[in-house]
Design a protein around this nucleic acid. Structure first.
Length: 445
RNA sequence: GCGUCAUUGGUGAAGUGGUUAACACGCUAGUUUGUGGCACUAGUAUGCAAGAGUUCGAUCCUCUUAUGACGCCCCA
């Protein structure tokens, strides 16, 4: 048997519907904030990611899907969305357009990782990038978009952690201060932290092993090393977040691994039982240095990304009421070939008129067809009977109340119209629109 | 790259070094004569992830590989 590659997943059935629902919410919120959808290639020149990420971490050396194509070009499957979007911004000279450029994407990413909770080799992320503005309001807006998407989805227990790394100067000073601070005490830390000391000292701050180490608790924080401009900037971000009524926690241990990050960084957690060791559902930050690294004009940027798979998991764990259509309007049953032909004709007519109609395709017994109709949650069923059809009539049955009526074939659309509109009025998610379930009470998705 | 545990049918799974791999759900068909969902009956793994080894004999023991779940490193 041929199986899917390691760390990949087939999304189908109910799960696929949840994914699609998340996509619709993402689209609608992004559109309201006037972000434009962008699709960039799933693979890019290897150099794009190598340059963007630098060679300090394991990312480039062991965690990307790299290959040579038949033309000997070095290709990498995109491991994240930002680099491709920024490349596109530069290559298409979007900096000459109305700025800032506000973009969002939604697509698959590829990381050569060992699969575990919330980690797959093929993952789907949506994200957003704003290029061409250094205004702290944009930082706040990006965070608020993220939070509002989660709220619209119906997630509760959303926690925003923010921090600032300051500008390059502040960041470098801080890094140096951290090394100076930890070096005399490094023996009391775990082996991994000893490794991190010179490679990536910021990572010591969120070490899982040493999280209770007293020395760690008294470590210098980024905020102590901010220069005045950076400090003011961070205050502004917080001020705007307050204004937007986004709750947040300043968490000095939030860091980003890569050098191009500066100023605002944030992670959004969802407090959900059974979510594994890592409950971060989205993260982002400002990357004012990236555009230049990629040979573009110096352009400030800020972005955010979130994995769909974990969001879907979160929605299921929280038992969020998701408006998923799980029924059909009408199921047509038949026995003879003539009736089958009429079923084919009628189902097409009704589908074009806007109804969700299904019928029998495997020539099963009538009994089996009734079962099938039930499994599909058909609201109405109709057994096509040649005698009725010859009289220009059809027997249609409400599959919930079991009421049966014989109506004229010509009237079937009017009949369904009337009946199904009634049903829609009655539709509710048991909360009468008063709770925060965010389900759509007026239309079905 | 490292570690722990796992892998039996469409599904949930029981089970044992020795001829027919339990039970349940599901599915298909029949009893039912063109109005079902109940009930009853029948059918539904030539095989216990793959390969190699130990053994008279292995689904069960050993090794290797693959995949999965979870964790470490890393985390864009």
């Amino acid at each position: 048997m041929i199986t899917k590659p390691k760390g990949c997943k087939d999304i189908y059935g109910r799960e696929a519907k949840i994914w699609k629902y998340i996509d619709t919410v993402v689209d609608s919120v992004m559109e309201k904030y006037n972000y434009n959808y962008i699709r960039t290639p799933i693979f890019e020149s290897t150099e794009l990611f190598h340059r963007g990420v630098g060679d300090t971490s394991d990312i480039v050396t062991k965690e990307t899907y790299d290959f040579k194509d038949r033309g000997e070009r070095n290709i990498t499957l995109r491991p994240e969305g930002t680099a491709g979007v920024v490349r596109s911004y530069i290559e298409n000279k979007m900096y000459g357009e109305l700025n800032p450029v506000k973009l969002y994407y939604n697509g698959t990413m590829y990381r050569y990782e060992r699969p575990q909770s919330g980690r797959e080799r093929e993952l789907t992320q949506f994200g957003m990038e704003v290029l061409g503005s250094d205004d702290p309001l944009i930082d706040s807006e990006v965070i608020s978009v993220a939070v509002n998407i989660y709220k619209m989805l119906g997630l509760k227990g959303i926690k925003v952690n923010i921090n600032t790394l300051g500008d390059t100067e502040s960041r470098n000073n801080y890094r140096k201060a951290l090394i100076d601070y930890f070096t005399p005490h490094i023996d009391s830390f775990c082996e991994d932290c000893k490794e991190r000391l010179n490679k990536n000292p910021l990572r010591i701050l969120d070490c899982k092993v040493d999280k209770d180490n007293e020395i760690l608790k008294n470590a210098p924080t980024t905020i102590d090393y901010l220069n005045d401009d950076s400090k003011k900037r961070f205050d502004k971000v917080k001020e705007y977040l307050d204004l937007l009524q986004i709750e947040y926690i300043v968490n000095p241990n939030i860091v980003r691994g890569l050098d191009y990050y500066s100023h605002t960084v944030f992670e959004i957690e969802a407090d959900i039982e059974g979510f594994g060791s890592n409950n971060v559902i989205g993260a982002g930050g400002r990357y004012n240095g990236l555009c230049e690294i990629l040979d573009g004009p110096a352009t400030p940027g800020v972005g955010f990304a979130s994995g769909i798979s974990r969001l879907a998991m979160a929605l299921e764990l929280e038992e969020v009421n998701i408006p998923i259509k799980e029924d059909i309007d009408l199921f047509l049953l038949y026995v003879s070939e003539d009736e089958k032909k009429y079923a084919a004709y009628l189902s097409q007519e009704l589908r074009m008129a806007g109804y969700v109609v299904d019928t029998e395709y495997t020539n099963r017994s009538l009994k089996a067809q009734f079962k099938q109709a039930d499994r599909l949650n058909a609201k109405y069923i109709a057994v096509l009977n040649s005698d009725d059809l010859n009289n220009n009539e059809i027997k249609i049955k409400n599959n919930i109340t079991k009421e049966e009526e014989i109506i004229s074939l010509d009237a079937i659309i009017y009949y369904l119209d009337e009946k199904l509109i009634d049903d829609i009025d009655e539709h509710s998610c048991d909360c009468d629109g008063e709770c925060d379930c965010h389900c759509n009470h007026d239309e079905e998705i």
